[in-house]
Each structure stands twice: as C-alpha cells, then as structure tokens.
Design a protein around this nucleic acid. Sequence first.
DNA 1: TATGAATGAGTATTCATTCAT
DNA 2: GATGAATGAATACTCATTCAT
Lengths: 205, 205, 205, 205
Amino acid sequence: MRGRILKESIDLFDKKGFSKTSIQDIIDTIGVTKGTFYYYFKSKQELLMDIHLNYIKELLAEQEVIFNDEYLSNKEKMNNLISLIIKNIKIHGKSARVFNREFRHLDDNQLKLINDYRKEFRIKLQKLLGEGIEKGEFRDDLRCDIVIFGILGMVNRSYNWYDPDGEVSEEELVNTYMDIILNGIKKEEKTAHINEKIIENHFTG
Amino acid sequence: MRGRILKESIDLFDKKGFSKTSIQDIIDTIGVTKGTFYYYFKSKQELLMDIHLNYIKELLAEQEVIFNDEYLSNKEKMNNLISLIIKNIKIHGKSARVFNREFRHLDDNQLKLINDYRKEFRIKLQKLLGEGIEKGEFRDDLRCDIVIFGILGMVNRSYNWYDPDGEVSEEELVNTYMDIILNGIKKEEKTAHINEKIIENHFTG
Amino acid sequence: MRGRILKESIDLFDKKGFSKTSIQDIIDTIGVTKGTFYYYFKSKQELLMDIHLNYIKELLAEQEVIFNDEYLSNKEKMNNLISLIIKNIKIHGKSARVFNREFRHLDDNQLKLINDYRKEFRIKLQKLLGEGIEKGEFRDDLRCDIVIFGILGMVNRSYNWYDPDGEVSEEELVNTYMDIILNGIKKEEKTAHINEKIIENHFTG
Amino acid sequence: MRGRILKESIDLFDKKGFSKTSIQDIIDTIGVTKGTFYYYFKSKQELLMDIHLNYIKELLAEQEVIFNDEYLSNKEKMNNLISLIIKNIKIHGKSARVFNREFRHLDDNQLKLINDYRKEFRIKLQKLLGEGIEKGEFRDDLRCDIVIFGILGMVNRSYNWYDPDGEVSEEELVNTYMDIILNGIKKEEKTAHINEKIIENHFTG
DNA sequence: TATGAATGAGTATTCATTCAT
DNA sequence: GATGAATGAATACTCATTCAT
C-alpha cells in the first residue's frame, strides 16, 4: 500500500503539481480512505520527502557504480552518467520532474538534507571532471563548477521536453549531448587555421 | 499602485512560491487592503499571467533587437542572446525564476499563450542556429532542436545557482558558456599535436 | 461580531467544554460562516486566551478598586473581595468557570501569562492578609499562603455548585464564608475555658 | 496489562488532559498495539469511567472506615477525613486530579453515577457535621451544605497547588486547614473581651 | 491474548473572492 | 480609488474504533 501511494502520488504531483494535488486526489485515485494515507505517511510533506529521498539515493547509488568502474576513462564515465540520466527518463521521469520541481515545498531541514545529496552528486561530477583534466582528457582552462552546472542544466532540462517514445532515440540524445559537451557546435576550422598560421610563422620566422 | 503590486508579488512569488504566497501576504507587504488588490487585478492568476506576459514580451523584444542587427554574425548573435539572458539575472532574476517555476499555476488558456511565446523564442534561436550552419559557422551534423534545448537548459538553469554578485562575473559566465557551446570541453589534442610536430619539423627541418 | 463570538463561545465552552466545542458549533449558534470566525480570531486557542485575559484583567481591576479604598479595614476588604467573587457568579459565572477549567488548553506562553496574572491576584490577597495580621485583625500563627489558597479554594469552587437564583442569597453565602473564614465552625467553648482559667487565676491570684 | 493501561492512562490524563491524550499515546507509552487496548477496554470513555470508579469507590471505602470508628468524636473524624484527602495527594494525586478535572468527558449516564457517589461522599460529611452540631462540637448557626461545600473546596483545591515534597508537610497542611475550619483566622479579641466581662462579673458578682 | 492495517467522520484552519459603503 | 467585513469551499490532518488474522 505504501508503495502504491508513493507511485500514484508521483504521478499526480508530476501531472498537477504538489500544491494542486490534494490528499483527497491521491486516495481517490487509489480507492482508500484518508486514514490509510496517514497510516503510512505522517504528512503530505513527509510523502514528498520520501519521493525525494528515494530518487536521489537511487541516483547516487547508480552514480557510484559508474564511478567505481576501473575500466572506464573519465570521458567514458561522463558519457555513462549522462546516459544514466537520460535513460532514467523513461523509468523515473516522473520522479525526476517532481524532484526537480517540487523541492521548494520541503521544509528547511528536509531541504537541507536533499540539497546535501544534490551537492554530493554534483561534487562527484566535478571530481570526475577535475581528474579528467589532470589526465589530459579535458581542457584545463575552464572552471569545473560552472562547467558541471552547465552540463547538468543541459541534461536535466531534458526531463521537461524529451519524449523517450518520440522520434529521437535515447542513444541519439546522449550522443548529441556528449558531442556538444566534448566538441561544441562550432565548425572546426581551428586545425587548418592554426596549421596555416604556424606554417606562415615558419616561413616568416 | 498596479506596478507596486506587480513588483512585490514577483518578490514574494520568488521568495515563497506562488501557492505559498497569499493575497494577504502581498497586500500586507504593500500596506493596502484586499479591495485595492482586486481593483487592479481580477484574480491572483491574472496577476501571475501579467508577470509572465511582461517577462516573455520584454525578452522577445530584446531578442528581436539582437536578431535584427545586420552587422552581427550568427555566432555573435548567439553570444549576445546568451549574454542577454545572463545579464538579465541581475535585473530580472526574480521575474525569470517566477516565469520558469510558476507557469504550472496558469490555467490552460493562459499556459497555451505563454507556451506559444516560449516556443517563438526557441524557434528563433533554432533559426539562428540553422542559418549559422548554412553559413558554415556551426557544425551541420547535429539536430538544431536538441542543440537549442541543450543550450537553453544550460543557460536557464543559471537562474537557480548563479549569484551575479559572487566571484564569477557575468562576462566570465557568458564567455565560459559560449566557449563550452562552441568548442566543448575536450582537450584539443590535435592542435597541440600538430603544433608540436610542426615546430619539431621546423627545427629539424 | 467579535463580541458575539466571545459571548457565544463562553456559553458553549461552559456548557460543553473547550475541546468538545467545535468552531462549527460556535458559528452555527451565531449563524455566520467559518471565515467570519477566523476574520476575528486567529485560532480557537486565541479565542480562549481572549476569554481568559478579559476575565482576569477585569477581576484584577475590580480587586484594585477594593484595595485602594482607604476607608476599609483589611477585614472589610477581604469581605468585599469575597463578595466580589460571589456576586460575579451571576454576571461572569460562565467566564469564571471557563477560566478555572479550560486554562490547560492554552499553550505554554499563554499559560505563563495567565498564571502570572493569577499569581498577582493571589499575592495581593496575601498582602492584604499580611497587613491585617500586622494590624492585629487576623491571627499571626498561620502561613499566609496556605490560608489564601484555602480561602480561594473555598470561594472559587462556588462557581461549580452555587446557583445565584437558588434558595441561598448571595449575601448569605458571602456572610457564611466570611464567618467560617474569620471564626471557624467550632462551637466556642473557649470562653468557658478561659473563664475557668481566669477564675482559677482569680482565685489563685 | 489492564492495570498497566489504567496506570499509564492516569499519568497521561493528568499530564496532558483527557482530550489531548490519544489512545496512541497510551499504547506507545506501554509498548503495545491498538488491539491490546481494545481487548481490555471497550472505549476510551470506559477507561475514563474506570478511573473515576476506582477512585471514588476507594475514597468512599476509606471514608466509611473513619465514619465507623466509634472511638472518635465528630471533630476528630472531620480531621481524619481531611487528613485522608490531603495524604492521598502523594499516592493518588494523579487520579484525584483526573477525577476532579475530566469528569465532564463522561457521558450522561456515567456522569450521573459518578455524581451520585460524589454526593454520597458529601452527604456523609454533612451528616458528620450535623451530628457534631447536635453534640455541641460545632456551631449551630451555619448551613451544613454551604459549610461542607466550603470545606471541600478548600481541601480539594490542594491537588492543584500542594506539593507533598515541598516545604509544607502534610501534617502542617492538615492542621492548618483544620485550624482555619474550626477557629477561623480572626484574632480572638473576644478572649480579652470576655475576660473583662468575667472579671467585671466577678467583681460585681 | 494480541496484532496492525484500514476506516470515516470530524476538526481546525486557509484563502481567493465578493460587495456594500 | 479604496476599504474591510463576510463568505464558503477546500484542505491537511486526527483519532477512536473495527476486524480479519
């Protein structure tokens, strides 16, 4: 029952938003009474907190697995992490949207805890980026924190528009994002350019 | 008075969220009575809609100006548009956050209109990108829509973490984003590689 | 309206008790809606606090008048204070019962304030007694605090059984209490006793 | 188990009041479940009635013992009964407070029964007083009922302020009350007066 | 004896909105 | 333009009680 309440709540919170979803809505969907709801959850907010905790903890666990894979380069790990987020949309898209939209309805203590977890996830990504830089996989002239905020913004917003059953496949989306992140969207003239310049210098030097 | 109500509402909606801000909160902040509020606004939702319309219309107007500047390349326009968004944080951060968070509280008709405007903004960016591709400024092997969604995600999220008075200047943020978007984060081994080789050749040549 | 709500609430709290009286009961009695109640009172508890404050403040004010009457002896003041309480039953009996029964439903801060006022009333009575002792109006071999607690217990309980419209008049009740308090209920044999002693002394003297 | 439930309930009812104590509170304190409670008690009210019955029946039984002691004068019996009440505070203070505070939560039938017992206790005291008057132990110019109400008020309120472990011993409290009840608080000027008269008579006699 | 999931009627409280003045 | 008393529908939450196991 607890599980059903969680599931239906996520559905409703995703569809209507936390504040517009009443306990009545939830129990009507399931077909139980108010007492039942409050037998399993102390309050509407505790339910919301549960949803948040479930989501972030699972995400962190999956992040951990990728992190601990010794056979992957940092670039590959980054790719897999983005893939993780995108592929989660199909299964956990609703949770993810609730997680990213409704956290303002948590109280101060709850929010602090969730934000700590959020930060943990972000810090690990920064570490991944930092190590990648040291290993020469990534550029070393950018601020890690901004880059990660940017990447997460790019990827996380997908929950709001990406339809896993639409014309763009998950793989294509992941690859596109990775491609942008790694190589940017500019037409690569640089090589030739530099080449020319150097040669030029060479001749004039 | 209308302006003051708008201003204080945006403040409160940003600070506490739309659903947690009561009309009472708003009028208490200003020091007027309920009647006054309803003299200027038909309903709380109409106020929210007003905030949305003001925001998106101004943004579209500013986008238009940049678009119509004949002396800019598409890359430069893209840069200016991102700069527009980032630099707005200081002035219109509150409105922007309300705009990006609370639109779910609009009713269906209102939401449709706002989404049309949103789409208009996005489509223009896509057009900019498309033209840039044709002109050879950008790569031609990526889906425009995904790229724009990605860029917007990256940039718009800044409203949630970027502090204009913090250690990162607006210029630095804009430049970093543009750099990532244009060039990606991968270490360009090719350039250096070629470089070295050439120099090597030069000396040995 | 505020006054009506107070009045009807006191009636209901007296009749049914605080916890068994719902806001619904109150507004049904008056014939208004819930919103009206909450327009005038922040909460059910604040209403209860109001009743308490009104009651004790008026009582203290009336006590003050008696206290400041320079033409009365301490014994007369004591008599008038008891008279004050008894005669209040007709007018403020309901408030008094609510005041003496329902204070446990106040929160800690409210209770502290009310208890301070309660104490103020009691301490003034103790002072009256103490001064009376110094002037030789009362015995000096009893603890003032216990005596006052006793007197107040005796008198205040009247609210629970005394019917001002019954066969015992207010004057009779006041006189009886004063008589008990001043002289006790024992048949005065002392006279004889003293008599004997005196006579004895007389004979031996 | 039944006994434990009774004991803990009295504790909680005394501490928090009947209406603010939930069945959940009670079973949590004991560490059992709802079913257990309802196995032993038909309802929360039945539990309250049990507490009331236990208390008043024991009090009546103890009153009976004192009453039936042929070797005591009525004054001594009165003294012992007051002593009984005061000394009960230490052992049955909680029950007593619950008994004196929460009876309003009984239903009509229960309340009628309890009030009959209450009255029985009071009537017996009135009888004691009446007999004492006849035997010349007490004054004959006061209404028995008022006097007894007064005495009970005085003594019963002790439950609300008297701390058996404080600086005033139970004996001192009993003695003080008995002293007030028997002799009042007025400084006995009569003695001197009588003295004078007697001496006068003596001289004239 | 005891469990604990489920009930459902009830309760305080909130709040956008109206409207006579 | 502005007031503020009054509305009433909605909402989160409580809790004594039941009952199948």
